[in-house]
Design a binder for these strands. Sequence first.
RNA 1: GCCCGGAUGGCGGAAUGGCAGACGCGGCGGACUCAAAAUCCGCUGCCCGAAAGGGUGUGAGGGUUCAAAUCCCUCUCCGGGCACCA
Length: 993
Amino acid sequence: MSDAAAPTADDTPRHRYDARLATEIEAKWQDRWEERRTFWAPNPSGPLSEGFAAFAERDKLFVLDMFPYPSGAGLHVGHPLGYIGTDVYARFKRMTGYNVLHAMGYDAFGLPAEQYAVQTGQHPRVTTEANIANMRRQLRALGLGHDPRRSIATTDVAYYRWTQWIFLQIFNAFYDADADRARPIDELIPLLEADPEVGWSELTELERRELVDGYRLAYLDEAQVNWCPALGTVLANEEVTADGRSERGNHPVYRRPLKQWMLRITAYAERLLADLDALDWSDSIKLMQRNWIGRSEGAEVDFPVAGHEDAVITVFTTRPDTLFGATYMVLAPEHPLLDVIVPNEWPDAMIGEELNDVPADWRGIFGTDVGPPEAIRRYREFAAQKSELERQAEGRVKTGVFTGAFATNPVNGAPVPVFVADYVLMGYGTGAIMAVPAHDQRDFEFAQEFSLPIRCVVQPSDTWLSERGVGAGTPAGEWPEAFTGDGVGVHSTNDGVSLDGLHVEAAKQAINGWLEAEGLGLPTVTYKLRDWLFSRQRYWGEPFPIVYDEHDLPVALPDAMLPVELPEITDFEPEIVADDVESVPAPPLARAERWVMVELDLGDGPKTYGRELNTMPQWAGSCWYYLRYLDPTNETAFVSPSAERYWMAGARDAADGAANDRPPGIPAGSERDHVGGVDLYVGGVEHAVLHLLYARFWHKVLFDLGHVSTSEPFQRLFNQGYIQAHAYTDARGAYVEASDVVERDGRYFLGDQPVDREYRKMGKSLRNVVTPDEMYREYGADTLRLYEMSTGPLDASRPWSTRDIVGVHRFLQRLWRNLVDEGTGLARLTTEPADDETRRLLHRTIAGVRGDMADLGFNTAIAKLITLNNRLTQVVADRGAAPDDVATALVLMVAPLAPHVAEELWERMGHATSLAHDAFPVADPAWLAVETVEVPVQENGKVRHRVTVPSDADADTTEAVARADPAIAAMLAGRTVRKVVVVPARLVNFVVG
RNA sequence: GCCCGGAUGGCGGAAUGGCAGACGCGGCGGACUCAAAAUCCGCUGCCCGAAAGGGUGUGAGGGUUCAAAUCCCUCUCCGGGCACCA
């Protein structure tokens, strides 16, 4: 067989657009884009400013993807959905003249690399770098138009040096509540000196330092923490699931006191809440953040403790209007006042008229033969050792112990017993409540458990009572549940105030006024949000730039001593440690013996200091990466002010105020409320709370301290959906390889064996993973991109269906064949313009695609492009060549979606330069106009006929044309037309009797 | 339990008060071919009908409107968030 005969094995034309050719084209253009620096986005000044002159008069756009973790498993086809979406959008905007910054980095610290290191002894850096390299390869093959100069990893020393620097900014700041912003800690000293209550001049140097440390936004606190022995670390509240287990690994989590770094995010609660209003985020995400911050308005009220002159129990309540119904109080088990108020012996109690002795079951569940101090001690121990899961399992039966102490209800002087119970949490409000069992379900349950009086002070409606099967006038103690709705106050009068007859809101106003006047309480706002626990007992994280001196107080390292590099060690395992609450954390860094102690001169001569042995949580690096993209090579600042201001500016107040040649398709004013920040941030909804709240907090601190120019980091947030997939289990319930399963008659089989189908996320353990690499091989990256964008709107989750990909592949093939001779590989165009109908379709398509792309409506944009291409197929069939005008516009419009094949076609059509910049077609209004339209004619809302009218016909003309139509005239003959509704160019509706 | 979001052909979806089902997959038919693949063309919600045409139809029920997938109320199911937060 001769060489010349070689291609006969299959007679595929040599230049057909198939997977082989696609792969060739894609590699070629990926190399070219890199060589030609196509996606370098110039800064206005500095080392990355080459080529800025071309953009000086243009607008900028900062498009951002959520920071990925470089997993060892590599990408599956679900991962890049958002990355493709942002790339299409970024390419579209670039083609309309924007200076678009789009970059990708890696959130590379974290547990998987460290756990792999523990198993294999492989240093986490080695694993991490290999994973990043693999992910870079996979993403490059997708043809994403990222600026490669701006790619960073959180594990780069040059990056985490600045993470440490930002930590020091937070450490060296305090929150000025009057100014409502953070200020440098140096500015605190004069305030303390001026405050007579502080007595600054009498304090020792050490006392002063401790006092100042207590104001810092990063502070050490011996607090109750979520200790997870299995992971060997503590976790933030946000990392613990509702059933008391670690979000990562599902291990039990215990609460125990431990000295840890905390970040004072609570100081920002109000601003984090209020500033949501100006953001272009979905309502559901805003709501999740609002719920997490959990603002509630109420009052703090002081209850004096009987027999203790100085002791006052301050409670927080959202229902001060029910004060007269408070029949007992509860302190959280960790409440410090317990050490003060608990008597040695059980009192002979008098509580109003209802009770005259201390019932045995008030004395605790560990025996009634002990006095209050021991009963309380045992209960506190019981509460501390119980994991959240155990609390859950107990069905939330209320437990608690009487403290033996009584407080006095300030509104009526009534003695109320004080309990300790774990349904009151130390971390919320004041850690103490007044219990109003008639009007709070939890208090109601507790009161029933402990036979406490239940006193109605807000009258429920008769309807409410009868719905619960109790008659009007039934005492509250016999209700099936607490009444928490609105009603009028009863039994709520003292010498100074009466709430009787007032509805809840009015009653709150009245009682708040009285409390304030009497000095007994103040209206208060409380938040669920807690300070952010910022220490982790891990190796693979950012070391703190903190050392401890001889007083064991923290000392910040000066900027010049950054970075504090991770020491090399060989054993990465956290010290384990029994899987229980008693085990003590031992950070791996403690094993770096030569690193732990360090001799430094921090201003008062060389001294020995001990290093902080914890590392920062993984969230730290992702709190500010978007800022580093702006100026990744800067060695003197985390970002230069000029780059930061340029890229983060709001669209409307761009620095130079130059005329923004806003392209059509984007309504003027749509970005009017743009307060600045990343122009488009795309990522999964799973980061709705943690990452987005933490990053907003850091950004606000940096804003307050003058390091960034916007108060919010992410102006517009878009949550992409997920790609899900079917998974199959065999008779034993084991997952089988999804790609081997076949469908027959609506059932599913692996060979002859029937299997069950589930619809799940894509994942290795479910054996239903499809990788982009497979798709590149079968169809090419352009087809994969187009497929993922075509299957639905970007925010919708959708099933993966390999079978369906062929549709968009055929579209590209047809497009190619319309423009290129499959035999010669040469473009086949004619300069003769297309027929009018085709040109009208072309311009309608341009207008539509522009609008769709601007709205991230890529699925409908693709549908319009397919329609146009199908039309072009006819034209080419008629003429033997594609009209130049249609071909040119079509290729340019396809370019953001399928950039490689578009560039290749563009080149074969005779263009020497890339189409990536400033070339998106603009619709000619002359071709958008149509002369006539067909409008439906309805009879009582049902379409019966259609008539053709001039597109600018008014209502009367349209109706006249309709009536003149013989079929319609017949329809109306002999009937009474009661009403005619005409919407010009839309429809005619005859309402007949 | 509370709060949010969703439900449209066999499948992914389109239409946000004005012709339901764009576009794609799948299916059916035709052209080309010795044949098959590929390609091109046509049809394709359901029911009745040879067709013309008619009826019906957007999770269920009710309402507003000349007109409802779209707005309102009630319910069912699915997905997500929170969960002793005073």
